[in-house]
Structure formats: C-alpha cells, structure tokens
C-alpha cells in the first residue's frame, strides 16, 4: 500500500479516500424526510500499480457500487476517488475512460444485442483513441487476437457467442480504450467452471503482458486467492479486513472473514 498523499507520479493508479455513497431509502411517513442507505461507508483503499487488488464480499455489501464509482458511472456522496492523483470528478468523461475501464459481471448483458462485435469494439477506438476507419479495422483484429478470438468473429452478433466468448469480447472492449486500470466486477461469476479458468488465465496473461492494474471484485474467495496481490474484505459498505491473501486466508483476524472462509464449500463435510 502506498502512503497516501505522495506526489502524483508515485501516486497509486486508484486511491479511495473515505468514500461514501448514499442512496435514498424509504420515507418513514409522508412528512418525514427520506432515510438514507449507505451502500459504501467510508472506504479508503489504494490499488497497487501493475498488480491486483481483490475485493471480496457478499451481495449487497457495496462492492459493485464501489466499482461504478471508480470508473465514474456514479459520483461519490462524500470522500475522494483519485485516479492518478486527480479526483474522478475533475476529468472529462473521455479522459477518464482512457485511464480506467470496467468489465461487467453478465457477459451477454454488457453487449448490445443489436450491434456486431466489430461496432461494439470500434466505438471506443473512434471516441477515445480518435482512430480512422482503417486503423480501427486493424486494431479490432489485434484486440480479437489478444483475447483469443478469431478475427472474423468480429462480424457476428452477441447471441452467437457463448458466455466465455462474450466475456472475452467484454475484456477486448475494455482493452480498446488502452486504459491501464481495469475494474473487474465479478468477471467470472456467470461462467462455467472450465470457462471460468480460461477467462482467469486470460486476465493473468494480459496483466503480465500489458502491465495492467486490476481491481478484482468477487464473492469467490478461492478465485480472489488465485489472482490477487492484496485483498480487502467488505461487509455492509465497510472494509473489515485488508491484507495480503496469505494472511487473510490462513490467519483471518475479523469474525466476518472467518465466517466467509468457513462457509466456502469444500472445506468440510456437513
């Protein structure tokens, strides 16, 4: 973990400082003001450069809200999210998209069913990298190769692909922006076990070759253990434990981490 507040070259790719996100809750009565639900409640974290920060937690713990705030899809209610030392809010949409991208959980839901893969991949190339038609065509081929798909698949529609292939396309789109930071929100949770391993291997391979920094969000402790350099355990919007995987998974200090570990299937005979 980099010490907070250093100069911007040495600044971590992503730094969260006491980030809070509130949603309006229900009104106790028609005259009372709405209560507020804190989805993310004072999170401070640094993403290490060229490495992987794993965030584990169960559904509703605020990890997806955190992911959306990092890429600028949601503004934080309080606190700062610094990308390369500058707050997210200070960036233009396109500037930010060139620095940080996201891969979504549902591989088919994150692709427009009525656009070919080529058009989906060309959109960021035109909008973010300002490429002309010919350059875009070449880059789409490169991207398809990078994620292990045949270049001629680019002219197909999303429904013609399996879940694993769709997720590769989602990764290719994130790579198209040439951002150094990828926020991976449950990228393998919707996939079959053998396909999950293929996508994990691809992500590991890309990180090694391109020097990417990952925020890897998952509810699966074993998957996070396999890919992460640092792990944050999240419960009800707060980080309850943070450390290297070895410590977290062998000597957990927080009760919730211990419960998660004990619940992981295959640890014991019921």
């Amino acid at each position: 973990m980099t010490a907070p507040g250093t100069a911007s070259d040495a600044a971590p790719p992503v730094a969260l400082r006491s980030v809070v996100r509130e949603y309006p809750g229900r009104r106790p009565s028609i005259f009372a003001p709405r209560t507020k639900l804190r989805a993310v409640d004072g999170v401070s974290l640094d993403v290490p450069r060229g490495r992987t920060l794993g965030i584990v937690g169960e559904s509703g713990c605020g990890k997806s809200t955190l992911a959306r705030m990092m890429v600028g899809l949601l503004p934080p209610t309080e606190g700062d999210i610094l990308i390369g030392g500058r707050p997210v809010g200070a960036y233009q949409r396109r500037e930010l998209s060139r620095l940080i991208q996201m891969v979504f959980q549902d591989p088919t839901g994150s692709l427009n069913p009525r656009r070919t893969v080529r058009r989906t991949l060309e959109a960021p190339l035109a909008a973010l990298r300002g490429m002309n038609q010919a350059a875009r065509g070449r880059r789409v081929e490169e991207l398809m190769g990078l994620v292990g798909l045949r270049a001629d698949f680019a002219d197909r529609y999303p429904h013609e692909f399996s879940g694993g292939q769709s997720q590769r396309i989602g990764i290719a789109r994130a790579l198209a922006a040439e951002a150094d930071i990828l926020v991976l929100d449950e990228p393998v949770s919707a996939l079959d076990v053998s396909v999950q391993a293929q996508v994990l291997a691809l992500l590991q391979d890309l990180q090694r070759r391109l020097g990417l920094s990952y925020v890897f969000i998952s509810h699966d402790l074993a998957v996070v253990d396999a890919v992460a350099d640092e792990v944050a355990v999240m419960q009800r919007g707060r980080i309850v434990e943070f450390g290297v995987p070895d410590t977290i998974f062998t000597k957990p200090s927080h009760a919730y981490t211990r419960e998660l570990l004990a619940s992981h299937p295959g640890q014991h005979k019921v």
Partner: peptide, 16 residues
C-alpha cells in the same frame, strides 16, 4: 483448474 483457498496466487491452467 478450479482454484482452491490456500493455493495462493498462481497461474490458472485452463482446459482448452
């Protein structure tokens, strides 16, 4: 190819 807890960071070897 299914990761297990306690294996630590390692290269996942998928079935092609």
């Amino acid at each position: 190819c299914v990761p297990r807890i306690g294996q630590g960071r390692h290269r996942v070897v998928p079935i092609p």
